[in-house]
Amino acid sequence: MASVLDLLGAILLVGGTAFLLSGGIGLVRMPDAYNRIQAGTKSTTLGPLLTLAGVACLRPDWGLTLLLIGVFLLFTNPLSSQVLARAAHRVGVKQAPQTVIDRLAEDQGEQP
């Protein structure tokens, strides 16, 4: 007989990994590197956060360490994807044909 907290934790686990799965599908389906970064960074932030919250519900005594991992991911994930997107643009990784506008390339064209 599982308690309500255990059940909530287990549902959070499944929900978190479901977001990870949507990120994985995005990685495969998105047409260019920038859109893949978008898909990768968003789902890999919320997914682990929910999963870690789920683990914390099932084992409250691990709460502090889990919180530490969560906060760390929350701060580093967007940073690393920004650095990566910047590097991609600087070396001129191609964008998908659907791309409608690129202000950054326009501005760099003006002031070389």
Binding site: A33, G40, L58, L66, I69, L73, L84
Partner: peptide, 26 residues
Amino acid sequence: PTAVDRIIAFDSLTIVSITGIALAAL
């Protein structure tokens, strides 16, 4: 196909592994 795509995939792999480690701990 580019190195950037591979790094993105690598980053995602690591995060999924972290989730996996948390599940294994559980």
